[in-house]
Design a protein around this nucleic acid. Structure first.
Length: 355
DNA sequence: AAAGCGGGGTT
DNA sequence: AACCCAGCTTT
């Protein structure tokens, strides 16, 4: 006995695929089945809405139209194309993996599940998505949408926050998937989750597979999927120092190459516990060997991440003399020269306040 | 198994 | 304010 033993599998496949072929949205990564384009789109779509991804995908493909173009690009340029999209390790991992494909697999995206899954940034979902969509191979591609849709259709009440639960859904997809059209089947499940079987108030009356849905039959679709709540997030306050000298140069610093916002650039940040409000000027004078001529408050920037919140108390500081890079991760640039530097959204919001 | 990792939208 | 999202990597 398993979750899929109670539904009419051939009918379910047909209903889902027929609906998908008719109702699917027209999206830039659906223009063809180029494995590279499928790959880029799937990485961008991780934890990210379709509407957000569309302009980034177009711009990215314009800049890096092929595997080789991306492999040969410099990392700064790649991060700049990812600026504002979030989860920046996706971009660095993608380029790492693309270089590997060019070198090890003669610039052809592998269709072998093990080779594909070993690439940096390609996990179980992305592997299955590329195999099924680009190569027509019947592999499961289980994401949040698929877990929501199938938890309702099959009334699976396991906690989808647990890593182990994904395997339950992969087993169900292996039972259900169409070997004739695995691409439309997998995309159909996801499209259904995006358009009909939504997290809140699903449109069950419009659902093409309503007659197969156990949760709808039992009237429990609103309480699925089961997901235990996450831990609360912490709050961090910093001073963000916008330091400008007489020649119109500002200090930017690059974040470490690991951790939050790795390798992105920012206005220097210091903890208030380390540098009290009254000591900001003295700190800047000592750190950069200059004299502060003026300091004013700009608007505090609040930025909410998935797991923590920043409050950036912004100080605009004019100094006499010429700034120099106090550390080797710092650069001196004019406002115009900041353009090539990838900034996180919080610091873009500081940039917008510059005089 | 749990935690870290962005940002935007919905309710 | 809480919850959601076309997840993966590191610990």
């Amino acid at each position: 006995m398993n979750y899929t033993s109670t539904i009419n599998i051939p009918q379910f496949r047909e209903d889902l695929i027929t609906w998908f072929e008719k109702e699917q949205r027209s999206l830039p990564w659906r223009e063809n089945r180029d494995p590279y384009r499928v790959w880029v789109s799937e990485i961008m779509l991780q934890q990210t809405k379709v509407d957000t991804v569309i302009p980034y995908f177009k711009n990215f493909i314009d800049h890096f139209p092929t595997l080789s173009a991306l492999a040969n690009a410099n990392e700064q340029e790649v991060l700049k194309a990812w600026e504002g999209l979030g989860y920046y390790s996706r971009a660095r991992n993608l380029q790492t993996a693309v270089k590997e494909v060019v070198e090890q697999y003669d610039a052809k995206v592998p269709d072998d599940p093990r080779q594909l899954g070993d690439l940096k940034g390609v996990g179980p979902y992305t592997k299955g998505a590329i195999l099924s969509i680009a190569y027509g191979i019947p592999e499961p591609a289980v994401d949040g949408n698929v877990m929501r849709v199938l938890s309702r259709i099959l009334r699976i009440e396991e906690d989808i926050a647990k890593p182990k639960t994904r395997k339950t859904f992969e087993a169900a997809v292996r039972d259900l998937i169409s070997s004739e059209n695995p691409s439309a089947f997998n995309q159909g499940l996801m499209e259904l989750g995006a358009l009909i079987c939504t997290p809140k108030s699903p449109s069950c009356l419009l659902c093409p597979v309503q007659e197969h849905c156990t949760a709808f039959r039992d009237g429990v679709e609103q309480s699925l999927p089961i997901k235990k709540k996450k831990t609360k997030q912490s709050v961090h306050t910093y001073f963000a120092l916008v330091v400008e000298d007489d020649t119109g140069k500002f200090i930017l610093e690059q974040r470490p190459n690991q951790g939050l916002l790795a390798q992105l650039w920012q206005f220097p940040m210091v903890k208030p516990v380390e540098v009290g409000e009254h000591y900001i000027a003295a700190y800047v004078e000592e750190k950069f060997d200059v004299k502060v001529s003026d300091m004013q408050k700009l608007e505090t920037v609040k930025h909410v991440f998935s797991h923590l919140t920043w409050f950036l108390e912004v100080r605009y500081i004019r100094v006499k003399g010429t700034l120099h890079a106090a550390d080797k991760n710092m650069v001196l640039v004019t406002k115009e020269e900041m353009t090539p530097y990838p900034l996180p959204v919080s610091h873009q919001n500081i940039y917008k306040q510059l005089p």
